[in-house]
Lab assay of single mutants.
Amino acid sequence: DEEIEKWIETLLKRNISLRVNGKDLEIGSEEFKEWVEKFIKEV
């Protein structure tokens, strides 16, 4: 979905790490990609 890709790009540009389930996810890491894929499937 384009919306999500733009959102991810924005996050990448800002180099933010997300806190997911109490863990810091490094943007661009494998864990982050897995989380994004799960997130996309749920939406």
Rank of each mutant, 00 (worst) to 15 (best):
K23M: 08
K41S: 05
F39K: 05
V36A: 07
S17P: 10
I16H: 02
G22L: 08
E31I: 06
F32M: 03
E42R: 14
K23V: 08
S17E: 04
F39Q: 03
K23N: 06
K13C: 14
L11A: 02
K41M: 07
E5Q: 14
D1W: 14
S17K: 12
I40G: 01
K23D: 03
V36G: 00
K23Y: 12
R14C: 06
R14E: 08
F39M: 08
L25R: 03
I16S: 06
E3K: 10
L25T: 02
W35Y: 05
S17Y: 04
V20I: 09
I40R: 08
S17M: 08
L12P: 00
E31H: 06
K13P: 01
E30H: 11
K33I: 10
I8E: 01
E9W: 14
E37P: 01
L25D: 02
E2H: 10
E2T: 11
L18V: 07
I8P: 00
F39S: 01
E26W: 09
R14Q: 09
G22V: 03
E5K: 14
S29F: 09
V36C: 14
T10Y: 14
E26S: 08
E5M: 15
I27C: 09
E2Y: 13
T10P: 00
E34K: 14
L25V: 08
L12C: 09
I27A: 06
E42H: 11
K23P: 01
S17V: 12
I8Y: 04
L18C: 13
G22C: 13
E30M: 12
F32V: 03
L12E: 01
E3T: 11
N15L: 15
E42Q: 11
E37S: 14
K41L: 06
V20H: 04
E34D: 10
L18D: 00
E42T: 11
R19V: 06
S17A: 09
L25K: 02
E26F: 11
I16T: 07
E5Y: 15
W35V: 02
W35P: 00
S17N: 04
I4H: 04
E2P: 09
L12Q: 02
N15W: 15
K23L: 07
K6I: 08
K13Q: 08
E9R: 11
F32G: 01
E34L: 15
E3Y: 14
E37R: 15
E30W: 12
D24Y: 12
E5L: 15
I16P: 04
W7E: 01
R14P: 03
S29M: 09
W7L: 06
S17R: 09
V36I: 13
